[in-house]
C-alpha cells in the first residue's frame, strides 16, 4: 500500500490515490512511501512471504498555481459571414493573483466554463445563447477564446441581447471559481464587453479582467 502526504497542505494536498491539488500559491513537497514485501519459493511451486521488508519513499517538489483572474491577449472585430453583423473574438489567458500566466503545458489540466446571469432576451432571431460547460483550455497554457455574435444576417441593426457573463475555473472535485466577469451586450452592429465598445477605437488587448468585473492595466 502506498501512503501519500503533503509537507504543507495549505499549499497543496494529495489524496489517498496520489492526486495532488493546488490550494494556494507556494511551493511544497509531496511524499509517497510504501513497503516492499519479499516472496521466496518454498522448494515446490508456492511463494511464501519472507519475514523481512524494505521501506521505500519518494518525494517531489511542487509549485502550486492557483487561477485568479484573466489577461486579454487579443481583441478581434470582424464581419465574417455577413456584411452588417459583427463578430468579436477575445482571447483570454488564465493568470494567478500576481498576473503570472498559467505555466502548465499539459492538455486537460486546466478547465474553464461560462456562466450567464441577468439575461436580457435576444431581440434578433435565434433565441438566447447557452453557456458552455467545463472544457479544456487550449494549447496547454491556459489560453481560451471567447466569440460573441448575434449570428444572424437580418434584423434591425441594434437587435441583440445583454447579460452578465462570467468565466469560471473548474477545479478538480471543487465548485467553479469565477476568474472574470463582464457586463456584455451583443448587437448586430456593436459588441460591448466590460464597458468597451467595438464602436470606439480603443480595445481590450493587454488588459486584465477581474472576478469583480473590473478591468485594469495590471
Amino acid at each position: 500500500m502506498v501512503t501519500f502526504r503533503s509537507e504543507n497542505s495549505s499549499v497543496a494536498t494529495i489524496d489517498s490515490s496520489g492526486v495532488g491539488t493546488a490550494v494556494a500559491e507556494g511551493t511544497t513537497n509531496l511524499h509517497a512511501s510504501w513497503e516492499i514485501q519479499y516472496l521466496t519459493l518454498d522448494g515446490g511451486d508456492a511463494c511464501v512471504p519472507r519475514h523481512d521488508t524494505t521501506d521505500c519513499s519518494a518525494s517531489c517538489e511542487v509549485s502550486a498555481f492557483v487561477p485568479h483572474h484573466l489577461k486579454i491577449l487579443s481583441d478581434t472585430v470582424d464581419y465574417p459571414n455577413c456584411q452588417d453583423t459583427i463578430r468579436r473574438n477575445l482571447r483570454y489567458q488564465v493568470v494567478d493573483v500576481n498576473s503570472n500566466p498559467y505555466p502548465g503545458q499539459c492538455l486537460g489540466c486546466l478547465k474553464t466554463k461560462e456562466k450567464f446571469t441577468n439575461m436580457v432576451n435576444n431581440t434578433c432571431a435565434g433565441g438566447n445563447p447557452s453557456p458552455s460547460g467545463c472544457s479544456d483550455t487550449t494549447g496547454g497554457d491556459g489560453r481560451f477564446p471567447d466569440t460573441l455574435t448575434v449570428g444572424v444576417c437580418s434584423g434591425v441593426a441594434t437587435c441583440g441581447f445583454s447579460m452578465t457573463q462570467e468565466y469560471q475555473w473548474c477545479p478538480p472535485g471543487g465548485s467553479p471559481v469565477t476568474l472574470g466577469k463582464s457586463q456584455t451586450t451583443v448587437r448586430r452592429n456593436e459588441v460591448i464587453v466590460a464597458g468597451n465598445s467595438t464602436n470606439v477605437p480603443t480595445n481590450l488587448a493587454g488588459k486584465f479582467l477581474y472576478p469583480d468585473g473590473t478591468v485594469k492595466d495590471n
Binding site: E114, F116, T138, G139, V186
Partner: peptide, 12 residues
C-alpha cells in the same frame, strides 16, 4: 443562424 457567446467547440 443562432447567437453565440463563449468558446467555440474545439480541441488540439
Amino acid at each position: 443562424n443562432a447567437p453565440f457567446v463563449g468558446r467555440m467547440p474545439g480541441s488540439s
